[in-house]
Simulated assay, not measured.
Amino acid sequence: MSTDSQPDDTIAQAIISGSTYERLRYERHSYLRQTVPRTLALQSALLGALALLLPVYGLYPDSTAAFLPSINPDLASPKVLLLGVFGGFLQLFGATLLVGSVLYRVRLAPLTERQAHAALNAEDFARYVGLGTGGLAIVLSLCLFAVGLGGGDAVSAYIAFTGRNPFVASGFGLSVAAVSLFAFVASVTVFYASRYLLVHLALFHRSSE
C-alpha cells in the first residue's frame, strides 16, 4: 500500500468508526494534531532536554566563572534558570490536562458532540501551552545556557548586546542541580504516562468495537 494513502485511510476510519471524538479531531483545523500519547512523549523529550542544564553548566570553561553566581551547580541559581523552570512547569501543566482529558473521554464514553468538543479544546490548549509556550521557554533557556560554553568572551559579547547578564543570581534559591534532577524525574514520569495511555486507549478502543 502506498504511504500517501495511509493518512487518508486513517481519517476515513475515524469518520466511519462512529467515534464522535475521532471524527471531530480530524475535522478541526489545528497545527498540533498529535495523539495524546504522542504529545506526552514529546513533552517528556523536552523535559529531558531541560535536565541537560546540569551537564552544560559543568562544562563551562574557567573564563565563564566570573559571570556566574557560583561554579557549584548545587548552589548556583542564575536568573536564566527561571526561564527553564517556567517551561518545565508548563510541560507538567499541559501533561496533566492531557491525562485528565483522556480519563474524561474514557469515563464518559460514548461522548456527545459537546463533550467531544470540550475534550478537544482542553487537549489543544494543553498542546499549545506545553509544546508551544513551554517548549519555546525550554529551548531558549538551553540556548542561553549554551552561551556560557563559549567562555568569558561569548558572555561579555552577549551582555554588551543585550545589556544584561543572564547568569546573575536569581534570588529564588533554585539551583541548577535541583532543577535538572526534577526535570529528569518529570521526564521519566511523563514518558511512562504516555506509554500507559497508549496501551490503555488501545484496549479501550478494542473493547468498544
Rank of each mutant, 00 (worst) to 15 (best):
F167H: 04
P110V: 01
I15G: 06
S44F: 07
V199M: 10
K79Q: 07
Y31A: 10
A119M: 00
L198Q: 09
R105S: 03
G173V: 11
Y57R: 00
R25V: 00
S170T: 10
M1W: 08
H200M: 09
Y60K: 01
F89P: 08
V80G: 00
M1R: 05
Q13M: 12
L68Y: 12
F89R: 09
S187I: 06
F191E: 05
G171W: 10
A186T: 08
A146T: 09
A49G: 10
F204M: 06
S141N: 10
R38K: 07
L83R: 03
A45R: 07
S208T: 13
F145D: 00
S101N: 08
S194W: 04
L149D: 13
T96D: 03
P110W: 03
R28M: 09
A137L: 05
H29S: 07
L83Q: 09
R25M: 13
G87V: 02
L59I: 07
L90I: 01
P110A: 02
A160H: 12
P69I: 07
A202M: 09
T20Q: 04
V179M: 14
R114V: 11
T64D: 06
V106F: 04
F182W: 13
T39V: 02
H200A: 12
Y57E: 01
L68V: 06
A193K: 04
L197V: 05
G18V: 08
I138P: 01
Y104L: 11
L53Y: 10
R206L: 15
A65C: 06
D62M: 14
Y128L: 05
Y21T: 06
L181N: 14
F184H: 08
L68S: 11
S19D: 11
L201H: 06
V56Q: 12
G18N: 05
V147Q: 12
L90E: 01
L59V: 10
Q13W: 12
R114S: 14
